[in-house]
Amino acid sequence: MGDEGIPSRDAVFAAHSLTVRFGGITALDAVSFEIASGEVLGIIGPNGAGKTTLFNVICGFVQPQSGALEWKGRTLTKVRTDRLARIGIARTLQGVGLFPRLSALENVMVGAQRFRGVGVASALLGLPRSDRDERALRKRALATMRDLECEDVADRLPQTLAFPVQKRVALARALVGEPQLLLLDEPAGGLGVDEVRELGERIHALRGSMAVMLVEHRMDLVMSACDRVVVLDFGRVIAQGDPETVKRDPQVLEAYLGREAGESVASAAAREDT
C-alpha cells in the first residue's frame, strides 16, 4: 500500500502522510497517495472516512497537523486558497455552491478569473482594455458552457435552474479555468441514472487533459470512470489500486458491509472469478 503504484516522476500531485485531527478525532491518519497527469483517481469510503477533509486540506480550508502536499514536483508548504486556481487546481463542491444572484454565465466567468489581465485601477476607470478583458472572459465562459450543454441558461439565475443543470454550470465554472487537477466532490449526488451515465462519459472525456480526483458514493460511476481507486476508512488508506481489485479487497468489503458480510461477499467474488 502506501507509496507503491505509479513511479514518482509521473505524479502531478501527491500527498505524503497527511494527518489531520479535530480535537480527539483523527480525520486523516498518515494518508499518502499519488495521482498522475491525465489519470482519474476515485476516493471512496464510508461516511466520515475523511474524503471531504482530504479535499479541504488540498484547498487550504483545513491545515494538516503533519504531512505534505506535492504539486508538480514541488512541495506546497502552506496552501493558499486564492492561489489554487492560478496554479491549476479547481474543485466542485458537494451540492452546488453557485453564487446566488449572479447569472449562470457570471458564475462561470468568476471561474475564469485567472485569465484576466487588468488591475483594479484600470477597471475602475473603465479603460477600454478592461472592457476587452470582460468580453474575452465572457466568450471563454460561454464556450465552456457550450461544451457542457448549458449555454442556453447563461442569463438565468442559478436558483431558477433544475438541479442537474446547476451541477453542469458548477462543473463549467471549475473547468473554465483549464485546471490540471480537478477535484470533484460527489458530482453525482442528486442525479438520476441517465445523468450519472452522462457525467461518467464527461469525466472519461477529461481523462488525458487533466488529472481528476473523484469523491463519490455512487459505485457505478466510480467503477466506470476511475483508473484507480483509493479507499479511506476512519481516515486511513485501507486499499488502493484498480477498481476491479479494490472491489474484491476483503478489507474494503469489511469497511463497507461489516466483517461477516464482507467475508462472504469476498468468497463469493472469489468463486465468480474461477
Binding site: C59, D82, R83, A90
Partner: peptide, 11 residues
C-alpha cells in the same frame, strides 16, 4: 456572496 468559494476560484 460566498467568500470561500470565490477565494477557491482565485478571487
Amino acid at each position: 456572496f460566498q467568500p470561500e468559494v470565490a477565494r477557491m476560484l482565485g478571487v
